[in-house]
């Protein structure tokens, strides 16, 4: 879906072109076209089962972990088709944060260092520096700097989720995917994650799936509304929520179904 004229100055980071995704013979994502803008937050909303999480997981080829899945069309990351790259390479370039915080059963430090280590970073100084930077970027450094050797499971749920964000940031992802990152958190932890996402604007391209429309309003620059596997409408967040072009979008954002 093409954006209005006033966005032309912003660079496109990723472009979904005529894209479909299949579980077996079931077409879960239907002919989607979408542009993800560089260093902006783009949210994907829609009722349960609309395909928003399925589409998100196409960006880092998570579906490749399961048999019987198939992609069609293109997802271009700076003119390179993600779907023809090695999925491991894709996941090295595109980070992901999940619904439930899922730290590794390792120390706080090792949780962040893991991604660097599998990329072959051996220099201790470099690892220390990048772990610290990632924890600072994820706004959790002050809380954990004195206990980096503690097990990550000793952190609270909200802290664990910020740790997972730091883990994803440590390897400088080109896009960071969030899959309903606050659905398992209490309101205070949710607010801190939202603040963090807003703070990351301008530094990293973010694509976030949320079931919470207010969250999309609060944190995203652009919003894609999906329904039954199709992309119904994509525009600036304020346009989607105040002045949507499609009837279905207007009905959904006003709470008439969902």
């Amino acid at each position: 879906m093409e954006l209005a004229q006033d966005q032309l100055g912003t660079q496109v980071k990723a472009q979904v072109k005529n894209f479909s995704f299949f579980y077996g013979s079931n077409k879960a994502i239907k002919d989607v076209d979408l542009e993800v803008l560089d260093c902006k937050v783009t949210s994907m909303i829609g009722p349960s089962g609309c395909g928003k999480t399925t589409l998100l997981r196409c960006f880092n080829r998570m579906h490749d972990l399961y048999p019987g899945t198939r992609y069609e069309g293109e997802i271009l990351l700076e003119s390179q088709n993600l779907l023809s790259l090695d999925p491991i390479e894709v996941r090295m370039r595109i980070g992901m944060v999940f619904q439930k915080p899922n730290p590794f059963p390792k120390s706080i430090f090792e949780n962040i260092a893991y991604g660097l280590r599998i990329r072959g970073v051996k220099d201790k100084g470099v690892i220390n520096e990048r772990v610290e930077r990632a924890l600072r970027d994820a706004a959790i450094w002050d809380e954990v700097k004195d206990r980096l050797k503690d097990m990550a499971f000793n952190l609270s749920g909200g802290q664990q989720q910020r740790l997972c964000i730091a883990r994803a940031l440590a390897t400088d992802p080109e896009i960071l995917l969030f899959d309903e990152p606050t659905s398992a958190l209490d309101p205070i932890a949710t607010a801190s994650i939202e603040e963090l996402v807003i703070g990351l604007k301008g530094k990293v391209t973010i694509l976030i799936v949320t079931h919470n429309m207010q969250q999309a309003v609060r944190i995203s620059d652009y919003t894609a509304f999906m329904y039954l596997g199709e992309l119904v409408e994509f525009d600036r967040t304020d346009v989607i929520f105040n002045n949507a072009a499609q009837q279905r979008t207007r009905e959904y954002v006003s709470g008439q179904f969902g």
Partner: peptide, 23 residues
């Protein structure tokens, strides 16, 4: 989720097993 988390960081199956799951 632990498996998926390791893979999402860019680990191969083997790296996920050796570095995260077996420990």
């Amino acid at each position: 989720e632990l498996r998926v988390a390791a893979m999402a960081v860019g680990a191969t199956r083997w790296e996920a097993v050796r570095g995260v799951l077996l420990p």
